[in-house]
């Protein structure tokens, strides 16, 4: 290789490493929304992601339908056509019923909470597999702002950590960077709920003297000023009380099923963590 090209290659590398390190240094431990340039990237890529997700769902349905048809090959064509027709209608009906049930649950939940909310569809998940976040198809134009709580019919999902005009990123409560101030519903013991590497959470800072039992319901305390008080979060799954530890190790199974998120509700409440100057903007 020509020496000049080699020098250029190293310079390119040094510059990019420097930029990446600067970005990490300025962003580690902080949560900030997307910058205008990043918003443009999201606005371009998110519709593509929405399309990919819809296509994948269609392919999945067709694939499942194909398998359900394999056993019917021996049937005569008339019966088969009738059966296929009925099956398709049935699939459609089931899909409608399941969508209806999900939306009814969401509606009931919406009615039980007085604050205004916006329904959004999940269009993508975290591409790394290491972090737990989702992308939803509503953004600033629908009234969404940073740190708004996101819930579904079963309970708390997470909070908005980045917002563009039409899309938002939600940090799920099962992510290790997430923290939710919670209460044990029965005994009113407090703790901070954080995500674990699995799809579970841990309730931190629960003293050894605290009254917590397996099966206890965990709800939001409202003390973090992000989540309204009393939203269901999960259920105590396991408690380890080690003699030399200050706190109990309380594992919590979240109420929401994070592997099947399709629609979520965003509670439209003002960002409690923004400064007064930001609020007036």
């Amino acid at each position: 290789m020509h020496p000049l090209r080699r020098i250029r290659a190293y310079w390119v590398w040094v510059i990019f490493v420097f930029v990446a390190l600067v970005l990490i240094s300025f962003n580690v431990g902080k949560r900030r929304s997307w910058t205008p340039v990043e918003q443009v990237v999201i606005e371009i890529t998110a519709p593509l992601q929405k399309f990919i997700r819809k296509s994948a769902q269609t392919v999945e349905r067709a694939w499942l339908k194909y398998f359900s048809f394999v056993d019917l090959r021996e049937e005569n064509s008339r019966l088969k056509e009738e059966k296929d027709d009925l099956r398709m209608q049935n699939d459609l009906y089931r899909e409608l019923v399941s969508t209806h049930a999900r939306l009814r649950e969401l509606l009931q939940f919406k009615e039980s909470i007085r604050s205004p909310m916006v329904a959004a569809q999940v269009i993508g998940r975290d591409p790394t597999g290491w972090f737990e976040s989702i992308l939803i198809d509503k953004g600033a134009q629908a009234g969404l702002r940073l740190n708004m709580p996101v819930v579904d019919a079963r309970g708390v999902i997470g909070r908005l950590v980045a917002v563009s005009p039409n899309y938002s990123k939600v940090l799920l409560i099962i992510d290790q960077n997430s923290a939710v101030d919670c209460l044990v519903q029965r005994s009113r013991e407090k703790g901070i709920l954080k995500g674990l590497p699995s799809q579970f959470c841990r309730l931190h800072y629960v003293s050894r003297a605290a009254d917590v039992a397996v099966g206890d319901k965990i709800v939001t305390s409202g003390m973090d000023r992000i989540f309204p008080k009393g939203l269901p979060v999960g259920e105590v799954l396991e408690i380890a009380d080690t003699p030399w530890e200050f706190f109990k190790d309380v594992r919590v199974k979240p109420s929401a099923d994070f592997s099947k998120l399709e629609e979520v509700l965003v509670l439209l409440k003002e960002d409690p963590l923004s400064s007064p100057s930001q609020k007036t903007k």
């Binding site: 962003n27 997307w34 890529t45 993508g124 975290d126 972090f131 976040s133």
Partner: peptide
């Protein structure tokens, strides 16, 4: 941008 990790 798409992930919940640290930017960079």
């Amino acid at each position: 941008l798409l992930s919940a990790g640290f930017l960079g």
